[in-house]
Computed example of a mutant assay.
Amino acid sequence: MHPEEIKASMRMKGITPTALADELGVANSSVSQVISGRATSARIAGRIAQIIGKPVPVIWPPKTAPVLRRMKPSAEVAT
C-alpha cells in the first residue's frame, strides 16, 4: 500500500500516526519510517496491521530481489 493509503486507513479507524507513536512509546519518526517503508519494526507494523485490519504482507509486500543475469563474455580483444 502507498504510505498515504496507510495513513488514511489509520485515520478512518480513529488513530493518527502520532497517537500510535504515543501508544507504543516510540518516536513519531519511527512510525513514519515504518509507514513509508524506509524502516522495519515488527511491533509497529503489526499494530498498524491490527488497526487497519489487513495482514502485514498486504500492507508492505515483500521486496523481491532483482533477477541477476549472467552476461555473455565479450569477445576477447587481442593485445
Rank of each mutant, 00 (worst) to 15 (best):
M1W: 11
M1H: 10
H2W: 04
P3N: 06
P3Y: 07
E4G: 09
E4F: 10
E4R: 14
E5S: 06
I6F: 03
K7D: 03
A8C: 01
A8M: 05
S9H: 02
S9W: 01
M10A: 12
M10P: 11
K13Y: 10
K13N: 09
K13I: 11
K13A: 12
I15G: 00
T16M: 12
P17D: 07
P17Y: 13
T18G: 00
A19G: 04
L20F: 04
L20K: 05
A21I: 03
A21G: 06
D22Q: 09
E23G: 04
E23T: 03
L24N: 09
L24M: 13
G25Y: 14
V26E: 12
A27S: 04
N28I: 08
N28W: 02
S29K: 09
S30Q: 03
S30K: 00
V31L: 02
V31F: 01
S32M: 09
Q33I: 01
Q33N: 13
Q33K: 14
V34Q: 04
I35P: 00
I35V: 07
S36H: 12
S36V: 03
G37I: 09
G37V: 09
G37D: 06
R38D: 10
R38E: 13
A39C: 01
S41Y: 02
S41C: 01
S41K: 03
A42L: 14
I44V: 13
G46C: 06
R47Q: 15
I48R: 02
I48F: 07
Q50E: 06
Q50P: 00
Q50T: 11
Q50K: 13
I52V: 11
I52L: 04
G53D: 09
K54M: 14
P55G: 01
V56L: 07
V56K: 07
P57L: 06
P57G: 04
P57M: 07
V58A: 08
V58C: 00
V58S: 05
I59Y: 04
W60Y: 12
P61D: 10
P62F: 06
P62W: 04
K63R: 15
T64Q: 15
T64P: 06
A65T: 02
V67G: 11
V67E: 15
V67Y: 13
L68C: 13
R69E: 05
R70A: 11
M71R: 15
M71H: 14
K72L: 10
K72P: 04
K72F: 08
P73Q: 09
S74F: 13
E76S: 14
E76G: 08
E76M: 15
V77A: 07
A78Y: 05
A78R: 02
A78G: 03
T79Y: 08
T79R: 00
